[in-house]
Amino acid sequence: MRTARRSESSNTGTARRSESSNTGTARRSESSSMRRRLRSFAIEFWLPVLIVVLWWVGSARADLVFYPPLAEILGRFQDLWLFDRFFTDVIPSLRNMLVGYALSCLVGVGLGVVVAQVRIARHALEPLVHFLRSIPPVALVPIAILVLGFGPEMKMTIIAFSAVFATLIATLDGVRAADPVLAEVTRVYRVSGRDRLFKVILPAAAPQILSGLQVSLQIAFVVMITSEMLASTEGIGYLTILAQQTFAITDMWAGMLLLGILGYLFNLLFTLAERRVLHWHIGMRSQAKTH
């Protein structure tokens, strides 16, 4: 609001002039954002690169049982994951995680939107939600094994259950915190049904919902690995813990490396998707900063 007013008062002439000054700043910020992106890329990656180099050099000659040379780890990484165990272990892990995560997204956002509309439902459900989310997900593995066995259903269920609460709570908060003026606009202009949900309620809550989804993604990833380490006969987590138990230390390191890379990739993909969905929010904020 402040920025809008300022840009208005800074030009004495017609509305059109202020518009052309807007596109001008947009173009200028485009080229400078390119430079900024390069610089932040350099700032982000010099340390990881340095660590990898030090690891490579430091571990090359050392003769430590628990710390095999990085070159060997990478060799085993290639043998194991590209693509010997790719279809038998990596794919099942990813499938469990994505199904579980997708379920938690749907239920979390869906239930959140519904419950946020009804005050009584919110009051009735909130304590329960906060109790359930405080149970460490891993504590549920024993009962999950009893009820669902060792199969993928158990893992999907436990991943979905653990991940759902972050999204649910974020959606509840986001929908509830939406500007009441928007509700009045939808009432006056009779915006209802699907339009109200997809063009007003969800976008208004989107910044909160997406940060909830990101936390859920991280939880889903952690639970995927732990559930495989605790009770499984396949999967990346299972192979990694098996390698540790059979003193295949290099394999264990290869598993850890893959998990690290996957975790990073998930986050990266999420951030890219978020940027697309929230482009208006990002644009709005950078507009506020440049003025």
């Binding site: 609001m1 003026v181 006056v188 202009y189 009779r190 976008p203 208006w280 929010h281 709005m284």
Partner: peptide, 19 residues
């Protein structure tokens, strides 16, 4: 809200959908 009625709100930054 009657169907034949439209309302222009005071707070334009809040009544328009930024998305």
């Amino acid at each position: 809200p009657p169907e034949k009625l439209a309302l222009v709100f005071q707070e334009y930054t809040r009544s328009l959908m930024p998305w």
